[in-house]
Design a protein around this nucleic acid. Sequence first.
RNA 1: GGAGAGGUGGCCGAGUGGUCGAAGGCGCACGCCUGGAAAGUGUGUAUACCGCGUGAACCGGUAUCGAGGGUUCGAAUCCCUCUCUCUCCGCCA
Length: 424
Amino acid sequence: MLTIHTIRENSQEVIDRLKVKNFDATELVSRITIMDRERRDLQNEANSAENEMNTLSKSIGLLFKEGKQDEANAARERTSSLKERIKELNAQLATKEQGLNELIVLLPNLPHASVPVGKSAADNKEIRSGGVCRDLGSEALPHWELADKYKIIDFELGVKITGAGFPVYRGKGARLQRALINFFLDENQKAGYEEVLPPLVVNQDSGYGTGQLPDKEGQMYHVTEDNFYLIPTAEVPVTNIYRDVILQDEDFPVKNTAYTPCFRREAGSYGKDVRGLNRLHQFDKVEIVQIEHPNRSYQTLEQMVDHVEKLLIKLELPYRIVQLCGGDMSFTSALTYDFEVYSAAQKRWLEVSSVSNFESFQANRLKLRYRDKETKKTLLAHTLNGSSLALPRIVAALLENNQTGAGIAIPKVLQEYTGFAIID
RNA sequence: GGAGAGGUGGCCGAGUGGUCGAAGGCGCACGCCUGGAAAGUGUGUAUACCGCGUGAACCGGUAUCGAGGGUUCGAAUCCCUCUCUCUCCGCCA
């Protein structure tokens, strides 16, 4: 969430910049500004009443000590109306604060100045691309048919055990999953990311911390008995490591990587693009999370993009990197790059990673701060994250792009992880 | 799941109704001392909001001793609820 300070001090800028996200904040901002004023007035009133009360209480204590019972009792009588007033003011203040907060969380993060204006994915800006999109002709099989042909992924079996969107990987298919996970983790570690293996189930506070709650409640699997949520991405448990934390300057950069399965209900997304591995309820992903000093976060974002790009190059997959336009960006992001790989049989670009700088938007919710060396002030840190990478669509692209008459060729870098060079 | 003990600042730890955001110690920062260091010594060392206005410093106010509520003129301290941790028992990978 944006800080009230930002909204208060730069209200016009907030409105202008949110237009890039096709968000008209005019009315919200003015309501927030008014409520903020009211809130502060209430707090001042309450504080001065409390001050009066505290002063009075102290004097009563002194009077008793000095044995001036009569004066003490007289003073004591004066407190009751004051007490009522404090109670009333504090109640009003709490209501006001809550109301204000409910409005503030409706404001999306401000897009970075470089974000292109646009309505949908069609307006995204291609940054660069790499690899070769081969034309495999009309007899090229989509990955779900290849998966069946080589008996490496069983979608039907998953339906029996759980339901649609929970595939069973087997044989070389299972091995390929494990190879990719290890490959990604190893590469991330070489790039300086500390590996963590977090819980796959989180509590409510964590859900709020990274912003899944309350908005996307319906997208997560909920364990009602214990009020836990299955994680939709490793971002949730990993970023929440740093909830309520005050870092020192020298702690930067914080770099974590984690492999986790991810669980998403994907409510309402049934339809066209859910075939095969394109959209699942459970999938594997390796995530990178970074926390940075605000001065360096954009530099860091570029480094993360370069890192993810190298992974795709090593996997010899045709890819492109696009900068999302305002209309296609998430609520919480300030700048997002999407990575897409070309899936040669589906003839589609599949999103395999999304690398974003959230600036202080998440940090504000998380109360993730750092102590500035020079000013000694505690300031909000910047958070960034990205997938490196999401497995299912990588697998889909690998299967489709690398199909040959002899079988599916495994990229060279993966062979030491898989232990085989071809799936046949 | 049953029984008991406990949760105080970055850490340890004192504090059972009054001037306590909280003794003392450790750690940390800065200074003095030293040729340099150690030791010693002095000072400082939580967070948030508000006053506050263009920002910062200072200053002042309020809140916070696991969380929420209550008693009281006044709560770290008394009462209630919740929560978490530890120990023992049970169950178990």
